[in-house]
Nucleic acid binder design. Structure first.
Lengths: 231, 231
DNA sequence: CGAGCACATATTATATACAATCTATCCATA
DNA sequence: TATGGATAGATTGTATATAATATGTGCTCG
């Protein structure tokens, strides 16, 4: 059997790995705002050569994490409660539009299934399994919507923000392992309202339901990541 | 006096130049869908080395022009009327939200100035100068809005699409030099409605006015670029 | 004391060669 | 036909060298 190679060092994924690493540390607040991201330092820190580092910086610029000044290098953007809200805002309008467009493109059978699932989850006892299940069906619903919205580009943009959101959610999870998941209390009810609106065939209601859902998600994230300390 | 160096070959702008070049040819339909974009070919075509080409491909992936498959390289996405509509759709929801947020953040003095300008342009005789002036004030209004929306991230995303939109507008212009600019007929009236809504302080009305404006722009672009040939 | 310039240094940007790895195709074999 | 390996070609990553640019320092000169 071949030696197990760390997935992070696999051929053809250096750039992606670097982006992910920087994202985590960025959202965890381990960097200072306006900190310079020199190619040398990053290359040395992760034991990779300059090329993948430069590519990662270009990608990070596209995601809005760093700003690249020609001939002067990359500088980190700021990250605080305001920036978090801005990320959630863009995600909100992207997915709201996707929901509006997906309305009428999802089979009633699928919607009925989801209605039943979210109904059960909304009233079920809150255990660890319930929490995991809630998150899985959250992912499922969002994926279903952007896949059926009919716009490859919109789906592409939503996916770009999914990377950010997943990282944020992961950090949130690591920060509050010993805290009750109160924020998930209403999540399934919100999902249910989205599905019901989709089922009714009312695009605006569906978009609004998604908008409200993501607004709540934004509030919960901010509370858990910044614990009401303004910034 | 030093020799005039072509801006396209200046140090520190290879990547940007490549992206721009590919964009133009992409929107002009000079590429085939699913065409492979090999580093070698691009490097040879523009007489640059592999490094900036690879960075340009990463950036183009972020803009949604190519798709990069790990260890298999970059492949061009499709571009037709549908893709054009999708670009305009995303731009529309981004700038509509920006307008909603900018409402109340622009000084009445500025708004009054714009009201007068768009009023004059809406009734002025349509000359070449009028056309240029219309475009300039269009840029001005859009810039004003995303700069005052209060979200750096939203402004960043809008700017990403500005690159696309500028290129599309440029191509449109080159395609219809001998055609009357009928599509600009209502543009100033649309601008006026946006400014009036902003002046009233009604965010939803302002967002809707911007939405309508960009919807019209989308229709005009599609007409001029594809001349009603479905695709 | 301050403006402006030369110069040293650091970093970015580019070019180039090469190694490691992966993908896809072909072809033999069961 | 299907399986499986050899092989060619491409991508990805590494290493290194060089040019261009930015930045800071110190000096001169007013």
């Amino acid at each position: 059997m071949a030696a197990v190679v760390s997935k992070e060092l696999m051929h053809g994924s250096r750039r992606q790995t670097l982006v992910q690493q920087v994202l985590v540390r960025f959202f965890q607040g381990e960097f200072q705002a306006n900190q310079r991201m020199t190619v040398q330092a990053l290359a040395k820190e992760w034991n990779v050569s300059a090329t993948p580092v430069r590519e990662a910086l270009v990608e990070l610029e596209g995601i809005g994490i760093v700003e690249i000044f020609p001939n002067r290098g990359a500088v980190l953007r700021n990250f605080g409660a305001k920036e978090l809200r801005e990320i959630c805002q863009v995600r909100r309008i992207l997915e709201s539009e996707a929901t509006r467009c997906a309305c009428g493109h999802i089979t009633p059978h699928e919607l009925d299934k989801l209605k039943q699932i979210f109904n059960e989850l909304a009233t079920a006892k809150r255990t660890v399994e319930w929490s995991e299940s809630t998150q899985e069906w959250d992912d499922y619903l969002h994926a279903l919507i952007y896949q059926t919205c009919g716009s490859e580009r919109l789906a592409h943009e939503i996916n770009r923000y999914r990377v950010l959101y997943r990282t944020l959610r992961q950090i949130r999870h690591s920060k509050r392992q010993n805290v009750k998941d109160y924020e998930q209390m209403e999540e399934n009810a919100e999902h249910l309202r989205i599905v019901q609106a989709l089922s009714t065939g009312d695009p605006e209601a569906a978009a609004k339901a998604m908008n409200d859902h993501l607004q709540q998600a934004s509030i919960g994230l901010e509370r858990d990541l910044f614990q009401n300390q303004n910034s």
